[in-house]
């Protein structure tokens, strides 16, 4: 199982030598084979192996006839196996290969906009909604998260704007609460990327309910992490807290609800060799200590309402 978020596309040129031309012929043949139900499964497998070495695979997938329709067909055809849950390992692997190709389309700058305009990510949300703990479901959730992760990794405003019109935040929060360590990491990474965007940060800090939901889940994660430590997950959690502290109203709330485990020596061991997370944590404390600046006074306190966030 590979986690694709964070892996750069290598820049192997797709044309040039005769060997590459031969390779390109094969790629085209597989793309054509995606159209036919009989040849599709093998083509999905072969193409998903090649998705990181063929630079322009995404526009080829998007612009060839029927390819995206075929990938959507793969997704919808397993919906009946989601609820009641009886997804087999074979079904899961097959649809995950289709998702891997969609991830390629989501990552490429020439196809990303069209991918969003056709609302394709929404077809993956039913998979994120599942709670079944079996391997086929876990793998499906993780791969679906990978597609959304690939979208946010591009730091495009368009992606954040799209995601904010959907229910991705509650879906990620649920996985952050109940998922496997790997799923939690990708879900938290997605939340972090949304927060790092100005629109995303103000969206989450717009109402008390939104902020307190996010703060509550992050708090629970810190508690869980204090029992089962994971450096890479903690890193994203800390980054989320730090970013929240950039919002004046969230900062006020965090002064009261930041979990103690982040302040004491609970994570000393995990943090020992992770200088960037240690730095983020120090910056977070510094932000929280700082008094409200004159800048903040321009914005009337929207979020800190009579009711204060509960201590976690």
């Amino acid at each position: 199982m590979s986690l694709n978020v964070g892996m750069p596309l290598s820049n192997v040129q797709s044309s040039g030598s005769s060997q590459n031309a031969l390779e390109m012929n094969k790629i085209c043949q597989w793309i054509l084979e995606l159209n036919h139900p009989d040849t599709r499964e093998n083509a999905l497998l072969e193409l998903s192996k090649k998705r990181e070495v063929v630079t322009d695979l995404a526009p080829m997938l998007w612009n060839s006839f029927g390819t995206i329709a075929a990938l959507l067909q793969e997704i919808v055809s397993i919906y009946p196996a989601i609820n009641p849950p009886h997804l087999t390992a074979h079904q899961s692997n097959r649809v995950c290969n289709a998702l891997a190709l969609l991830q390629c389309v989501a990552s490429h700058q020439d196809t990303r906009s069209a991918f969003l305009q056709a609302h394709i990510p929404l077809w993956l949300y039913p998979f994120l909604h599942t709670g079944c703990k079996t391997r086929p479901f876990e793998y499906l959730r993780l791969t679906s998260l990978g597609v959304i992760g690939a979208l946010v990794k591009t730091d495009e405003q368009e992606v954040i704007n799209f995601l904010l019109t959907t229910e991705i935040i509650p879906l990620c929060l649920r996985i952050m609460e109940t998922g496997s360590e790997l799923s939690k990491t990708v879900a938290t990474f997605i939340l972090q990327k949304i927060l790092l965007d100005e629109t995303g940060l103000s969206y989450i800090c717009q109402t008390y309910e939104r902020f307190s939901h996010v703060a509550m889940i992050l708090g629970k994660m810190v508690l869980q992490l204090s029992k089962e430590q994971s450096g890479r997950l903690l890193k994203h959690v800390v980054r989320c807290y730090l970013r929240l502290s950039d919002n004046p109203r969230a900062k006020e709330a965090l002064r009261q609800c930041l979990p103690d485990q982040l302040k004491d020596t609970t994570f000393q061991n995990v943090l020992k060799d992770d200088t960037s997370t240690k730095r983020w944590l120090q910056q977070l404390f510094k932000n929280l200590e700082a008094p409200a600046t004159s800048n903040n006074q321009q914005q009337p306190s929207l979020m800190i309402q009579p009711q204060q966030p509960r201590n976690l």
Binding site: L32, H36, P37, G66, Q73
Partner: peptide, 23 residues
């Protein structure tokens, strides 16, 4: 400009509609 000849959609030709028939 961009697409390899093999997978270009051709004009005026009847497309192989298999995937839509499958739907």
């Amino acid at each position: 400009e961009r697409m390899p000849e093999q997978i270009r959609i051709k004009t005026g030709s009847s497309q192989f509609n298999v995937v839509y028939e499958e739907f």
